[in-house]
């Protein structure tokens, strides 16, 4: 079987010498091209760790990640990351943050004017054209996150990795950005791995939801297909039975079978 992205037997142990704590064990996941996969699980189970392994920012102790059958062993723009806290460079304007990535990825293949257009195009995709000259500290948290997404999209990554991209946002902003992301996804058909804490967000956006067991030694507990048609509408789904069923499955996994450790004590 030749998946587009293949995570094979990945395990990681931090501090292997001093106090070995296996964080992830035996993670296997195959993702097809154009698929949108969410990873959900309780805090500290190792979602970010898994995403960082796919990004190449962390090296697994066991197993490996293969993208188009090539072993991933270093970070690169083909696996662009949208970080949880936007990670924009504060000394660059909104435009320059995206432009830096565009220059780096397309510096040799596209001309000056083309790169300028492409930078503007991606900022336009996330609805940030109006603020290109502003510095990150001058725009809101939601806008920073949009720029972070534009920067990642502008790299034309093979896989887009997002670590709780909307985690720090209020409910309204979050819904707006989710809709924006769905719109972009219907046209671009990126391969996406997104970490989230939010069950509704996972069901709304994903083709599949990967549910992780609690750490230490966390692994994939269950994978749920979301058989909803694309071009989903938030309001239509409110009364949809498939939606409600999927939602219930995830909730049952998280709160009946894999309650967080501290919830038992309480």
């Amino acid at each position: 079987m030749s998946a587009y992205l293949s995570i094979e037997g990945v395990g990681i142990t931090f501090n292997p010498r001093k106090s070995p704590t296996p964080a992830l064990v035996g993670v296997d996941l195959k993702i097809a091209k154009g698929e949108f996969v969410s990873i959900i699980g309780h805090s500290g189970c190792g979602k970010s760790t898994l995403l960082n392994i796919v990004a190449g920012l962390l090296k697994p102790t066991l197993g490996g990640v293969f993208l188009e059958r090539q072993l991933v062993d270093a970070p690169g723009p083909d696996r662009a990351v949208v970080f949880q806290n936007h990670s924009l460079l504060p000394w660059l304007t909104v435009y320059d943050n995206v432009r830096l990535a565009v220059n780096k990825v397309f510096g040799k293949t596209r001309g000056e004017a083309e790169r300028h257009e492409w930078t503007l195009h991606n900022l336009n995709l996330v609805g940030m054209s109006h603020a290109i000259a502003k510095y990150p500290s001058e725009v809101s948290g939601g806008m920073k996150q949009r720029v972070g997404i534009a920067r990642a999209l502008a790299m034309e990554p093979k896989v887009l990795l997002m670590d709780e991209p909307f985690g720090a946002l209020d409910a309204l902003n979050r819904a707006r950005l989710q809709d924006a992301l769905m719109g972009i996804q219907t046209t671009l058909r990126n391969t996406v791995i997104m970490i989230t804490h939010d069950v509704d967000e996972a069901v709304l956006l994903s083709d599949r939801i990967v549910m992780m067991t609690n750490g230490p030694a966390a692994t994939i507990g269950e994978v749920l297909d979301i058989p909803l048609d694309r071009a989903r509408k938030r309001l239509d789904l409110a009364d949809d039975t498939t939606y409600a069923h999927c939602r219930g499955e995830v909730l049952r996994f998280l709160y009946a079978r894999h309650r967080p450790a501290d919830a038992d004590a309480a």
Binding site: L57, G76, P77, V81, S87, L89, A101
Partner: peptide, 9 residues
């Protein structure tokens, strides 16, 4: 910032 630099190579 180091991670951004790493992803951008």
């Amino acid at each position: 910032y180091r991670n951004v630099a790493a992803v951008l190579r």
